[in-house]
Structure formats: structure tokens, C-alpha cells
């Protein structure tokens, strides 16, 4: 018995929507960022799976994933810098405390 593409796609969809749920329900900015990383990783699994099952003689999906990992690293660095800045300003990293634009 081999793994079918369907099972991998369903698994990565489950992981993606766990990330969506976390992004919507958490108020801690760092945990929200972690949920985003979870979503990025499920997309990476999709790329690799499609590369293996549909485009086996080439490596394009692998390179997409490689570049997504690099961009995720840059994104995490900038986001954490922003979070530290927000913490210095508001003395909290709760996303609902940063409401200066609201008024």
C-alpha cells in the first residue's frame, strides 16, 4: 500500500486550518506568529507532495519550498523586531492592547 496524494493533501489542509484557528483565537502576538509559521509549513508539504506525485523528474516544488523557508526566516526576524518594539511601547504583546490607530 502506498500513500496517496489525497491523504497528504488532507493532512496538510488539517494543519493549515489548525493554523487559521490559532491565528484567529490567540491574542498573544508571538503565538499568532507561530500559527502563521504552521500555515506556511502546511503549504510547503503541499508543494513537496505535488512535486513528488506530478512532476517527479524536476525539482521545482523543492525550490519553491526552499525559497518559502528563506522568506519565512526573514519574516520571522522582522516580525519579532516589530513585536519587541510594540512591547517597549505598550508594555504588552497582547494584540488587542495595541489600539493606538483605533482612536
Amino acid at each position: 500500500m502506498n500513500i496517496t496524494l489525497h491523504e497528504i493533501l488532507i493532512f496538510s489542509a488539517a494543519l493549515f486550518f489548525i493554523g487559521v484557528y490559532g491565528f484567529l483565537t490567540r491574542r498573544n502576538m508571538i503565538t499568532m506568529l507561530m500559527a502563521v509559521e504552521l500555515m506556511l509549513n502546511s503549504v510547503n508539504i503541499n508543494f513537496i507532495a505535488f512535486n513528488k506525485y506530478l512532476w517527479n523528474h524536476q525539482l521545482d516544488g523543492v525550490f519553491f519550498t526552499l525559497f518559502i523557508i528563506a522568506i519565512a526566516a526573514a519574516e520571522a526576524a522582522v516580525a519579532i523586531a516589530i513585536i519587541i518594539h510594540v512591547y517597549r511601547h505598550f508594555k504588552s504583546i497582547d494584540a488587542e492592547d495595541a489600539v493606538e490607530l483605533k482612536n
Partner: peptide, 19 residues
């Protein structure tokens, strides 16, 4: 581990190192 099973050995190593 999923990457290893999908024949992306290099990517598995990069994933562990970077993430």
C-alpha cells in the same frame, strides 16, 4: 519526517536547521 518520506532529503535537513 514527512519531507524524508516524500524524497526531499536535503529539504528535511534544511527544515530542521532553519526552523
Amino acid at each position: 519526517g514527512h519531507y524524508l518520506m516524500l524524497n526531499a532529503q536535503f529539504l528535511a535537513a534544511v527544515h530542521v536547521i532553519v526552523y
